[in-house]
Structure formats: C-alpha cells, structure tokens
Amino acid sequence: MKTLSDIPVGKTVKVKKLLGEGPLKRRIMDMGILKGVEVTVLKVAPAGDPIELNLRGYDLSIRKSEAATIEIEEEN
C-alpha cells in the first residue's frame, strides 16, 4: 500500500482512500483531499518534514505523519 508520504517531489498522484479517523480525517477532507482528487507533491521543508502539496488550485502543507494516512492509487 502506498501513501502520500512515499511520493517523491514533483510527482502527481490520485487519492484512493483516507485511512485516518475523527478530527484528522475531517480536517483533511475539509481541505479538499478526497477520493479521486489529484495531488502534486511540490516541496519538502528543509528538515525533511512537513511537505507541500498542490491540489484544487491551491497549496497546502501537511506533516509526513498525516500524509501517511492518505492512501494513493498505485500507478499502472
């Protein structure tokens, strides 16, 4: 299973499933990260964490630990 935290900078992937629960999951959903949405990993902070994403036309930063709760579709 691949999650968003495994994706190298510059790559665009499709979200498959949200693994988190409760407030964390709700927050991620509220920000527009939902099944089927395309997310690009833009950048990694100097210390390696958090990461910067682009989705739905805006930039969002999340920690790797949160990115690990976002399952993505494997490439064919």
């Binding site: 964390l24 910067e52 930063s61 949160e66």
Partner: peptide, 9 residues
C-alpha cells in the same frame, strides 16, 4: 495537533 496548513499565495 494536526499540522494541515494552507500556504497562501
């Protein structure tokens, strides 16, 4: 607390 933050233009 979850760190989910917009980076505004």
């Amino acid at each position: 607390a979850p760190f989910i933050m917009e980076l505004p233009a």
